[in-house]
Design a protein around this nucleic acid. Structure first.
Lengths: 126, 126, 126, 126
DNA sequence: GTGGTCTAGACCACG
DNA sequence: GTGGTCTAGACCACC
């Protein structure tokens, strides 16, 4: 499982890690039932502290995306929907799109990019 | 200029303010050359600390969206492209899209929502 | 003896197992003198580690609810009061009730639910 | 604000702290808008590490019970209902009640105790 | 072996 | 002033 930490990214490392794993799950690269790497191993691979990864895993567990069992590791949970509203989702989308329009991208270009990204996210999903 | 601060939004206030102004500029509601309200006035209107608005304005200036002149306030800059790469833009887009797919939205639904949001952002522009 | 393990339950498995058996005893479904299934059998039935069941049984024995005899299995003990104080009992009750009140349940609704649950626990007893 | 840590309690300290504050909010002892003590102050008062309290506060924020603002402390949020199901709530209630029945309490006694605890939780609530 | 919690202390970000 | 994050390392609990 390849995860990249961007030290120029303003988000905390544990958020970056959680988001990347979230994407791997969304894309189907990590199927339900798959075991995540042990906290200590992933921490070692990424060169960060054990607690940083533990925090990321806890966030994913709180979101219902993985199940962590003491002594037996973390496993990708079966599908379930969280309690986020569509407006919450739209808010972050709107923000991302705003930056594209400010950078001068045209409507059609943006739609193409969205389509492209969605293909990346959904292609492996059942 | 109407700006709303959402206290349940976990982003820092200065980011919320900067993002909202960014959207106003992107949508064309704030044209190049328009003066932004003085820091003190906006801070008073929103009931937040003066430094919070100052930080938001500084971020917008760093992004090249506004020009701050000592003694004469902040003015919306003419169009120019900032130093962000397309990959930076895609990263935040990808994150937003990930949450949609995890929430169970279908590809077509997401495309519709994106199109809808883009309409909101671009309708007043050009 | 039917015991269900909920993998989305964040309590350790051995606690889940012990709690379920506790409820079976409380409800009278398991009478004093009844033999519990052998550790190996129950572990096999539930698909969990042998130590997990052993720990659950040990906890029940420590609570005085069952007697474990080397070589002859575990037997439901006769009634006796354990060394827990009423304040200990009230603490977990208070916690459960707190969540109900925060979820907006009215006093009467909560009393009905408690009554309902007690009926379930006590109907087979005595 | 008085909070007691019980070192014989098997729950982690940060959970104990979060649960106690949850009860203070549920009971109305902490009204919406009230500021919680600063992380460092509460940590000092209780003799625990700063991070332990920060974790408790974060848990409460994730549950929507408080709003934490960087630089300006934590404030009890206005009422809102979380996304927990009634079955989740009943599970912890059932557990607490089971222990009462095992300790030999009669149905009527338990109902009285529940009523008593509810009075403590609800008396100050609007 | 696994993950969980806590500490002490550093350094950063927000208002 | 406030809270947030991260580290290094200890010790515990679970399987």
């Amino acid at each position: 499982m390849y995860i990249a930490i961007d030290e120029n990214d303003r988000r905390p490392i544990y958020v970056q890690v959680a988001d990347e794993i979230r994407q791997l799950i969304a894309s189907g690269a990590l199927q339900a039932g798959t075991a995540l790497p042990p906290v200590r191993q992933l921490a070692g691979d990424l060169g960060v502290n054990l607690n940083t990864i533990a925090t990321a895993y806890r966030e994913l567990q709180d979101a219902g995306l993985i199940n962590i069992r003491h002594g037996s590791g973390a496993i990708v949970a079966s599908n379930r929907s969280a309690g986020v509203t569509e407006e919450d989702l739209r808010k972050s989308l709107r923000n991302a799109l705003t930056h594209f329009t400010l950078a001068g991208f045209k409507r059609a270009e943006i739609m193409n990019i969205v389509s492209d990204e969605l293909r990346g996210l959904l292609q492996k999903k059942s």
